[in-house]
Computed example of a mutant assay.
Amino acid sequence: MIEQLPSLPAGILGFRLRGIVTADDYESVMVPDIEAAFALNRKVRSIIHLGDDFTGFAPGAMWDDVKLGFRHISGWERTAVVTDVGWVRVMSSVFGFAIPSHFKLFSNAQMDDAMRWIAEPR
């Protein structure tokens, strides 16, 4: 399941991933929000939280995640990933350099720091 993070400033998208995330979750929650944000903003920031209740991706969901990121490849200004999930931290560290935005990885205990970082002025 994917749900929106509440009360974020304009131009910042935030999502919390819980349980098993499916391709339908991307299509019904993330895609509309991302497309709407890019219709209003040339550059967008995002914060993604994968908490302790995140258990993984259903088949096809990871591919949807990759496609979604590349659809607006030059429009991502800043991306924060907040998680203590070991394999997600490893993958984020390994592939973070390939993300075409300023990318930073935070632990769950650093959620407030991640929120401040994603919202700080340019």
Rank of each mutant, 00 (worst) to 15 (best):
G60A: 08
E35P: 03
N41L: 01
D53Q: 14
A61W: 06
A58S: 12
I48H: 07
D33E: 14
V31N: 01
E27W: 04
S46K: 02
G60P: 12
Y26P: 01
V21F: 08
R16Y: 04
M30P: 00
E27H: 11
A37K: 07
P32L: 07
V44Y: 00
T22L: 06
Y26H: 13
V29S: 03
V29L: 02
A37V: 05
L40F: 03
R42G: 09
V31I: 15
A58P: 07
V21H: 05
E27K: 13
A36M: 10
E27P: 00
A58M: 09
E27V: 04
A23T: 12
A39L: 08
L17G: 09
F54G: 01
R18H: 14
D24W: 04
F54L: 03
G19K: 10
R18I: 05
M30S: 09
A23Q: 12
K43N: 10
V31L: 11
L50I: 04
T22S: 15
L17E: 03
D53S: 15
K43D: 12
R42K: 09
A58C: 10
T22M: 08
S46W: 00
E35R: 13
I20L: 14
D33V: 01
M62Q: 11
R42I: 08
D25S: 06
H49K: 13
P32T: 08
M62I: 10
I20R: 12
L50Q: 03
R45P: 03
N41F: 13
I47D: 00
A36F: 04
E35C: 07
G56T: 10
D24T: 13
F54H: 05
P32R: 09
E27T: 11
I47G: 01
D33S: 14
L50N: 01
I47W: 01
I47R: 01
D52Y: 07
M30Q: 12
D52N: 14
D53C: 10
F38T: 03
G51I: 07
A23K: 14
D33Q: 15
P59K: 03
R45W: 05
D53M: 08
L17W: 13
F54W: 06
G60Y: 12
I47M: 07
M62R: 11
D25I: 03
K43P: 01
A39N: 07
R42F: 06
G51F: 00
H49D: 02
D52T: 14
F57W: 15
R18K: 14
K43I: 12
G56V: 12
M62F: 09
